[in-house]
Design a protein around this nucleic acid. Structure first.
Lengths: 141, 141
DNA sequence: CTTGATTTTGAAATTCAATATCAATTATAT
DNA sequence: ATATAATTGATATTGAATTTCAAAATCAAG
């Protein structure tokens, strides 16, 4: 967790931006949360500690955290962007249940390998990817 | 193309909905277009033929076409939902260039196979999936 | 310190795609 | 024909995300 803060500081420095109280506090809260929350979710949690922080700052900070590669946007299909931090979590994809909305995190190294191979075929340099499989989970069928 | 219209009619009938002039016209225009257009793009094209059609109807019809599996939503990362029709196009994924925004359609049967296998591991019944690889295309590097 | 240039902040206003509302119109089965 | 239900388009509304802007905070250089 200290690691993430250092990454953030380095990223900000590189971009000539500053580590402010608000940004630090938002990052700390974010890292402690359950993952996959929306900007509004995070705003509501942050607000409990510091009622003076504004929504806009939370939005802005989440964007920065994505830029610093500490957070990742996830689109679960409702109109809301969710964010997950990478603290202690490897890359993974999602199996999303279209009945109950729950999702499973999953990863297959073989698929990852083939994705890279597919890119090579098109002389395309991959940076990151999203793979979301929608369907019906065990409980719902 | 006649096939798609039949699929649409069958789908509407199944749902106790009606094939109206507007829906028919929107589908026809949609199938003729280049693919990956937003609801607004389609609205602007449809309007040239029939100025009386409303935006809401285009939105609603695109949703129906997705339900009928004639169209597919694509999220290219800007805030706009794009739609592509499946007329003469197999399922594919996208390699999206983060520099120029252009994208490549690509498909790997081996990946598809492994995706199904991955789902089986979680007792998850897949319906459809999105796979988008973001990176830098040949021209941009 | 103090200054000055720059960045950041929060509140509020704004944007924009997408959806909901609603009275008028249209389709379809009987 | 008629009754029932679905559809339409104009408009208003929603809601996430972004922008604006004046005030506050940061930081480097004197």
């Amino acid at each position: 967790m200290a690691k993430e803060i250092q990454i953030f500081i380095d990223y900000l420095k590189k971009k000539n931006l500053k580590l402010t109280d608000q940004r630090g506090r938002i990052l700390n809260v974010f890292l402690k949360t359950q993952r996959h929350l929306s900007a509004e979710d995070l705003y509501n949690i942050v607000r409990k500690n510091d009622a003076s922080i504004g929504q806009a700052t939370v939005f802005r900070t989440l964007k920065l955290l994505c830029g610093a590669d500490i957070a990742k946007e996830v689109d679960l299909g409702d109109g809301k962007t969710r964010y997950e931090h990478k603290c202690g979590h490897e890359h993974h994809d999602h199996l999303i249940c279209t009945r109950c909305g729950r999702f499973i995190e999953a990863m297959d190294p073989e698929i990852e390998r083939l994705q890279k191979k597919l890119c090579r075929r098109f002389a395309f340099t991959p940076q990151y990817h999203k793979m979301e499989i929608f369907g019906v989970c065990k409980k719902c069928r």
